[in-house]
């Protein structure tokens, strides 16, 4: 299992002593893509060499495939994804009236699968769910992130902000210590990005596969398992205005 803790230990002396900078100023928001090597940037930019496109392609096939007891494809109801799904990922997560909780894009896809197609839900992080999510999110590529303004999401988003700012663990670091205050600095071998969820699901070279934002968060820090969707809402709000990149590539 990869965790940033070993890295964090290396960087702790450098990080902890620093008096907090002002954080991310307006107009300074930058996608993780800006902190990557030119080689990795090129990999993302070329659809022919971006491995994430393999999942988008699989998602396109699954979109057309009839499933479940209803024996209907996503396309059966939603028709042409480039029309009907355009912009959807740019405003997710949404409020799910049924559970009265936030629901992310993968969750919404799975709820359509269970309720509309009457099929078994897809396992989290399964290739099929990642592929459908990447395909749907890809329809928003290049559009600015504009999180839903649904007031019912506010308490969850506030909780996410609180989590982002809480210092936890032995090193007393919060997500904000790194991503608001110390972005652009080096930590071990990597540059600390601003942690904007612009490209999920994305292909991580370290994983050698595509993964969700939830997986990324599990990897980034242990101890925030509690309300990952709340954290996701806060991250999306911080990223307002940045462009959707799905499928992105990250180191």
């Amino acid at each position: 299992m990869h965790a940033l803790w070993p890295l964090a230990a290396v960087g702790a002396a450098a990080i902890c002593g620093i008096v907090s900078a002002a954080g991310i100023e307006d107009g300074e928001e930058r996608s993780g893509v800006d902190f990557m090597t030119p080689e990795t940037q090129a990999l993302q930019a070329d659809d022919m060499s971006n491995p994430g496109m393999l999942w988008v392609l699989q998602g396109e096939q699954l979109w057309q495939q009839a499933e479940g007891r209803a024996d209907v494809a996503c396309a059966g109801c939603h028709d042409d994804a480039s029309q009907t799904m355009r912009g959807v990922a740019a405003r997710y997560s949404a409020f799910d009236a049924a559970t009265e909780r936030p629901i992310d894009l993968a969750g919404r896809i799975n709820s359509c699968r269970a309720e509309r197609q009457q099929a078994e839900p897809l396992a989290p992080e399964s290739d099929a769910l990642l592929a459908l999510t990447a395909y749907v999110a890809h329809q928003s590529r290049g559009m600015p992130i504009t999180p839903a303004t649904d007031a019912r999401l506010a308490p969850f988003r506030d909780n996410g902000r609180r989590l982002f700012q809480s210092r936890i663990g032995q090193l007393e670091l919060s997500c904000a210590s790194c991503h608001d205050d110390d972005w652009g600095k080096r930590l071990g071998g990597s540059v600390i990005p601003q942690a904007h969820p612009t490209g999920y699901p994305l292909f991580r070279l370290e994983w050698q596969t595509v993964g969700s934002l939830q997986r990324r968060l599990r990897n980034c820090m242990i101890g925030v398992r509690a309300e990952p969707l709340d954290l996701e809402l806060h991250l999306t709000e911080r990223a307002r205005g940045l462009l959707v990149e799905t499928p992105a590539v990250r180191p």
Binding site: D47, M48, M53, L54, L57, Q58, Q61
Partner: peptide
């Protein structure tokens, strides 16, 4: 289902 991208 082959998941392959080819560019020609």
């Amino acid at each position: 289902m082959a998941r392959a991208l080819v560019n020609v």
